[in-house]
């Protein structure tokens, strides 16, 4: 017993020193690790997904070693600021509000949102121009992940909505199925791939158009980093452009979707 705890202590100490001695080339990357198909753990415990492929591609180009840290979404920016990791590669949209606290690389994926609800409940939530009809949201419980673009969109556009905030996107989906919320707003790519096309999501459908107003959703999803690291930011931007121009970024998307998730002009 004693022997075991001593060896455990030794491992602990080793871990402590190894993080203390991080070489200049090692960067720690924060992501949720539960946000399939963008960043998640496979059955074997390996990290996979679009964000992970981007991270690996960038690491290779800038010649750095990336270490991955799994972090709940609502603590992502505080953890970056507290130096728990150096980069956020977690499908985080580049929004004005976030840029007050952290810096972002250029975009590497579209950022959009869409409302989902049960098929059997007819709803007319948006007008023909794609604007939400506030009155028709009355009496509907809306499930959203805390600290997301979707939450800010609802807060600004539909301040009277009955919003319920969740800690992660899996719980939002669960409670939509359980009937605790009537509609949710989420990433349509993820919704289609991981929910609507599956048995669990068979009774649900999109209840409106894709929303992507730059004001709330930003120009896209980027890599987050602490402010004042312009050199690193330039390196990241260069690497992302390389990934776009070489076609690698498109190939990451096409592993999962039949279409790419970026604009080629982002590579200019």
């Amino acid at each position: 017993m004693v022997k075991q705890s001593i060896s455990l202590l030794a491992i602990g100490a080793a871990a402590l020193f190894s993080t203390a001695n991080v070489s200049a080339e090692t960067l720690r990357v924060g992501m949720e690790c539960t946000y399939a198909p963008f960043n998640y753990k496979t059955a074997d415990g390996e990290l996979a997904g679009y964000d992970v492929d981007v991270a690996k591609g960038v690491a290779k180009i800038i010649g750095a070693e990336f270490e991955y840290v799994c972090q709940e979404w609502d603590g992502m920016i505080p953890a970056l600021l507290a130096n728990k990791f150096d980069l956020i590669i977690a499908s985080m949209s580049i929004t004005e509000k976030r840029m007050q606290k952290i810096d972002f690389s250029g975009p590497y994926r579209f950022s959009t949102g869409q409302v989902l609800g049960a098929r059997k409940k007819p709803m007319e939530l948006f007008d023909d121009a794609g604007n939400p009809i506030a009155d028709n949201f009355k009496g509907l419980k809306v499930g959203l992940e805390r600290a997301t673009t979707y939450a800010s969109w609802f807060e600004e556009k539909l301040p009277g909505a009955d919003v319920v905030l969740y800690d992660n996107s899996e719980s939002v989906y669960l409670d939509l199925q359980n009937g605790r919320v009537d509609i949710i707003m989420t990433n349509p790519m993820k919704a289609h791939l991981k929910f609507l096309s599956k048995e669990d999501g068979a009774g649900f459908e999109f209840k409106g158009p894709v929303v992507d107003e730059v004001e709330y959703f930003g120009v896209g999803v980027g890599i987050g980093l602490r402010k004042g690291q312009d050199e690193l930011k330039e390196k990241l931007n260069g690497a992302l452009k390389d990934l776009i121009n070489s076609g690698d970024l498109e190939s990451y998307a096409k592993k999962i979707f039949p279409f790419k998730l970026h604009k080629d002009e982002w590579g200019q």
Partner: peptide
């Protein structure tokens, strides 16, 4: 606590 977590998520000031 729930309200505090939402404020933190908005202000990033834990």
């Amino acid at each position: 606590t729930g309200i505090a977590r939402t404020i933190v998520a908005d202000t990033y000031a834990p």
